[in-house]
């Protein structure tokens, strides 16, 4: 019982701990330096901001 709970709690600490480590890396790496630009990384010259990219198929030409 005690050993099991000990293992479980160490599991919880491991999960949260690895999150903290990853967070530390992200801060050091400068991942959070420019948040407003970062949000735009999924857009590019081909599919720029302002271009919708999905719609229902239809037979009629737009």
């Amino acid at each position: 019982m005690t050993a099991g709970i000990l293992l479980l709690v160490s599991g919880l600490v491991f999960l949260s701990g690895s999150a903290l480590l990853a967070f530390y890396w992200a801060v050091r790496d400068g991942q959070f330096n420019n948040l407003s630009e970062s949000a735009k990384t999924i857009f590019d010259a081909d599919e720029p901001v302002g271009t919708p990219t999905d719609r229902f198929p239809s037979n009629t030409r737009p």
Partner: peptide, 15 residues
């Protein structure tokens, strides 16, 4: 964001 072509409202909140 990709479908409507607009970045996430607050990237800070998403983080």
């Amino acid at each position: 964001p990709k479908v409507i072509g607009r970045p996430v409202h607050s990237y800070y909140l998403s983080i």
